[in-house]
Simulated assay, not measured.
Amino acid sequence: MDFYLIVNQLVVLFLIIFLGYMLNKWNILDKYTSKRLSTFVVNITTPALIISGMTDPQTLQEDINLLQIIIIAFVCYVFLYILTLFVPKLLKVPKSDYGIYKFMVMFSNVGFMGFPVISAIYGRSAILYASLFNLPFNLLVYTLGIYFVSSDGDKKMDFNWRLFINAGVIAVIVGMILYLTKVQLPMFARDTIIMVGDLTTPLAMLIIGISLAGIPIRKVFANYRLYAFSLLKLVVFPLIIWLALRNIVVDDLMVGVAVVIVGMPVAANAVMLSNEFDGNEKVASEGVLLTTVLSIITIPLLVFLLA
C-alpha cells in the first residue's frame, strides 16, 4: 500500500474543489452554470461512469462471488439506513436539514473518489470488488437519495414509482444486463462511454467548489455539528463495519473494500442532486468539503488499521 498515492489522490480532489471555488469568485462559472453542470453530471456522465465500470473487459472475465459482494454491500446500506433514523436526532440537527443529513450518513463518495483510492490501496484488481459493491449505491442514491434531498422535516416529497425512472437506475440495469450476459461493447462505443464517464469526477468537484463560493468558509470549519458528524462518518461507522465483518467474511479484500468505501467522505452526489431537486445545497457542500478535507487524515489511519 502506497500511502503517498492515497494522500495524493485526496489532495488532487481537494484542489479541484478549490479551483471551482476560485472560478466562481472570478466570475467565470456562476451558480446557473453549476446547476446546468449538475444536470449534465447526474443524467449523462455519472450513468456513463456506471456502465463503463460494469463493462470493463477485466470485470467481464473475472470469476468471483458476485452474490456475496452484493449481499455485503446491501447489509452495509441497511446498517447505514438504520443510522439515518438516529444520527440527525443525536446531533440535534434542525428538522429542515434532516433529509440532507440522512443522505450524508448513508452515501459516501464511491465513484468519484472511492475507485481511485481503492486502486491505490489494494491495486487495480480491487476495482472489480468496488464496482460490484457500488451497485446498491447506484440504485439507492437515485431513488432513496433523491427522496432524502427533496424532503425536509416539515414537508416530505411523496415517494412513488417515478423516483425509479431516471438515468442512474437505467444505467445500473443496462450495466447489469451487459455484465451478466458478458457482452462486450464495440470499441468505439466503449471508448465514448469511458471518455464521457471520466468527466464525472472533475466536474463534480468543480460543482462543489462553485457551491462553496457562496458560503463563508470560516462558517464551515467552525460548525461543531459537522465535526461530530465527520467523526461518525469517517471513523465510527467504518470501524463498526470492520468489527461486524472481520469474523464473518473470509475474503480480507472484500472486508477492506467495504470498510474503506463506508469510510469515504460524503458523496459529491449530495450537492448535484440538491441542485437538481431543490435540496439544501449549502449544507451538502459544507458536508462534502469538511469530510473530504478530514479524510486526508482518516483514510490513511483506516488503512493502517486494516493492514
Rank of each mutant, 00 (worst) to 15 (best):
V236F: 15
T192D: 10
K155L: 12
Y21R: 05
D252A: 14
G168C: 11
D278I: 03
A167S: 15
I51Q: 04
L15Q: 14
F3D: 01
M1I: 09
L245A: 06
P202L: 03
M113Q: 02
L273G: 01
P300W: 13
I127S: 10
I44V: 15
L306V: 07
L83D: 05
F112H: 10
I51C: 08
V87D: 01
M176P: 00
G145C: 08
V93N: 01
G197F: 05
I215T: 07
A120E: 11
I28Q: 14
F304Y: 09
Q68P: 00
F237P: 10
K35M: 10
L306Y: 02
D152A: 15
I16Y: 09
L243G: 13
A171P: 00
V41R: 01
D2W: 08
D152C: 10
L306E: 01
L199P: 02
L302C: 00
V174P: 05
N134H: 08
M187K: 07
T291R: 05
I127A: 01
F277I: 10
A222T: 15
L139M: 13
F107M: 10
F3Q: 08
F115R: 07
F277M: 08
K156Y: 04
I240R: 13
K233S: 11
F40I: 06
N109Q: 04
M157C: 11
T55L: 05
T46A: 13
F164R: 02
L180Y: 14
A268M: 15
R124C: 05
L185K: 04
I215K: 05
F137P: 11
F107S: 04
A244V: 11
Y224C: 12
V250G: 12
G256T: 01
W242T: 04
P186I: 03
W161L: 14
A120G: 05
R225T: 15
E286Q: 10
R36L: 11
N138M: 14
N27G: 06
S285H: 01
D97Y: 14
L302D: 00
N138K: 08
D158I: 08
A267D: 08
Y224F: 15
V288W: 00
M205K: 04
L306Q: 02
L232G: 12
G114M: 11
K89T: 15
E286C: 02
K156P: 04
F86M: 07
K155V: 10
T45V: 03
G214I: 09
L163I: 14
I51E: 09
L60V: 11
S108N: 08
P265G: 07
F229G: 06
M157P: 00
F159A: 12
T84Q: 01
V249D: 09
V255A: 07
M176N: 03
T55Q: 06
Y98R: 12
V220R: 13
L60W: 03
M264K: 00
R218S: 12
S230Y: 14
T33M: 14
G114H: 07
A213D: 07
S211I: 02
T292V: 03
T192N: 12
P57F: 05
L19W: 07
Y21G: 02
G20M: 11
L253I: 09
T143P: 12
S274G: 02
K182A: 06
F137T: 11
T143K: 06
C76M: 15
A268K: 01
V259L: 06
T291Y: 01
F115I: 12
F304E: 00
L60Q: 05
T291K: 02
L135V: 12
L13W: 09
V78Y: 09
D2G: 13
V250K: 13
Y4Q: 12
V260E: 00
L37D: 03
L239D: 05
I100Y: 01
L305E: 03
